[in-house]
Design a protein around this nucleic acid. Sequence first.
DNA 1: TCTGGGGTCCTAGGACCC
DNA 2: TCTGGGGTCCTAGGACCC
Length: 421
Amino acid sequence: MYALIDCNNFYVSCERVFQPHLQDKAGVVLSNNDGCAIARSQEAKDLGIKMGHPYFQLKDTHPHVWVRSSNYALYQDMMYRVTSIIRNYFPDQEIYSIDECFCDLRGFTVIDPLSLAAELRSEILNCTGIPVCIGVARTKTLAKIANRIAKKKYKDVGVFVLQSQEQEAKALEATEIGDVWGIGGRHAARLRAMGIDNAGKFARLPPDWVLKNMTIVGLRMWRELNGESCIPMEYVRKAKKGIGTSRSFGKPESRLAVLLEALATYVSLASAKLRSQNSVCGRVYVYARTSDFVGEAERFACGFEVRLITPTANTGELIKVAGWILKKTFRDGYRYQKVGVLLSDIRPDTEVQQSLFDRSVKRRVRMASAFRAMDSINARNGRDTVRVAASGNEGKWTMKQDFRSKRYTTKLSEIITVKAI
DNA sequence: TCTGGGGTCCTAGGACCC
DNA sequence: TCTGGGGTCCTAGGACCC
């Protein structure tokens, strides 16, 4: 059996832990740049606020709903607390996303998974203040379904176990096709048009059809729904194959010099991530674009990719290349909404093929140790303690974050204050 | 005025190799 | 009449996840 532990309205729940007055009141957490709602309290959902609902509309239509900007430092750390507790119960965990964790129950002689899951759930709530739901079933995909049922149908208990095949069959019949893990909008629409509107009907389709029309990925899902486990647990986080960094500007920006500063900042971030997994990249893609929501004539997107002669993780080199691309591709006269960089062709830094024509090898080695030193200073003293000058001074282009709560758990100066009366 | 950011995997088709 | 067989690598596009 597999368990899926999923935090309820996670970002909203994190905000409520340290701001208890937000409890029981409709509220949302906004995306970066305070763009749109990406987490909603149950009360907000009940008001009909949708995922991705733009904030500039919400503030007029729902002025009484509380809002917070995304505070990822807080959410990441809260999830760390949650997974630490889970680990005491089930040591084999796969942290699937910022708010979900799979556990492998095979090898456990769990007599009563339901009461064990219930115990874990209340332990997490007591220790962290985060409510979770737990679904248990024979495969990961079925555990996802069990979790959904726990959330929708057994909210008070928060736990649901698919024990028997009869229960599985009933659960599949009750699961809308679009709610199956791995079926997105495209496939859902297509299947619905064929009359396949729930997971049970999908699981009874001939496997040949599924393979032909939905690739091996679809077939894997089909098998999982039929009780055959074929999505393995991933205990160690794999090295990333691509690292992308981009942000929307607080307001549209037309000046190349400002775009270059923003880009240098994103390249610094991305290359630090690259070094943290001991990798180098062989390709750099840079792009800039205007908003999707402006008229045809003002809309513009540009960018291209270059292949590096020698793969690198050196911030300075990468900024130089990225800046060169942006200057080449940039066109005057547009109001840009964002720039971004994508590092790809990623490989271990121990497997770098040197170029015969590269005369700066020694300098490279020196720079590599300089950036290692920078990373460790920033790790010890906080992000951006040392940064590259090309990033410029903040303020000109940074994203909107008008409603961010404090970093209660990761920054000493923002720790919660308790007053004794 | 105003609409996020970060990833993964699969397939088909083209170019190339012997 | 009739033109092989076995590969690799790369790219773009599609679909999906949170």
